[in-house]
Design a protein around this nucleic acid. Structure first.
Lengths: 120, 120
DNA sequence: CAGTTAAGTAACCTTCTGGTTAAGTGCAGC
DNA sequence: GCTGCACTTAACCAGAAGGTTACTTAACTG
């Protein structure tokens, strides 16, 4: 499940780009919460929060179930992990680039006898 | 440097929310590149790419220097790390929540003598 | 100096975003 | 079954995002 498409990443990163939504995710990381509980800290109308929750839900970052008149929200940590994976992957590519550069420099310095070794 | 403000996270996550910009970051992770090099893979006008680069630059994810008529772009990996930190932090908070729940369950099971241990 | 290449700026358009208020839905409890 | 609570949906608005074409700036090149 949870195929890692571009659209999913688009939606997840876009969802995390809003401070209100990040705060909601932050709150949900400590446990499920109802809409009113999530709305409490904000000076924003309830429909405003409802919209943010819809964005989060469509991004896959949260899910909602029904419990009587409440709609408890639940953090879907797999979606968070997908963003994590993307960033760490490219972070690693970056680091490996330096490793290769170092190796190349070392080869130049030991093998050849300082032959104008401009790399940048 | 690079104080971790909400605005910086807003900008970084928003920058990563676009597939073209992620592709650019992906490319830059392998090394610096000029605007034309970055634009090559895309069916998009150069000003379009230029706009994306400006978004990436303002988010702190890339920087640009001047080299004659070229403007080589450079990945600023610290900005990437800030997004990484935010996600991993909340990922950990999530995990710790389960640890605490487990501990509570274990306490209930060992301490009390199976007393209808409904937790969910 | 004229021409070319690299890139950025301006103006414009359309669609999406983030917020609002007002009205609607579903459930619970007297 | 009415009242009230917990939300959602609808309609609307201002401003931002993402794209375009046309024009400008800057630097090398002959």
């Amino acid at each position: 499940m949870s195929t890692l498409t571009e659209e999913r990443l688009d939606a997840a990163f876009a969802a995390l780009a809003d401070p209100t939504r990040r705060a909601i995710v932050s709150r949900l990381a400590t446990g499920d919460a109802t809409v009113n509980e999530l709305a409490a800290p904000f000076a924003m109308s309830l429909p405003g929060i409802s919209k943010h929750l819809k964005v989060l839900e469509r991004s896959g970052l949260i899910s909602r179930r029904r419990d009587a008149q409440f709609r408890p929200c639940h953090l879907e940590v797999e979606a968070l992990d997908q963003t994590l994976d993307w960033i760490t992957t490219h972070r690693r590519i970056w680091d490996e680039r330096f490793d290769k550069l170092d190796a190349r420099l070392r080869a130049v310095q030991s093998g050849r006898r300082h032959r104008k070794g401009v790399v940048g």
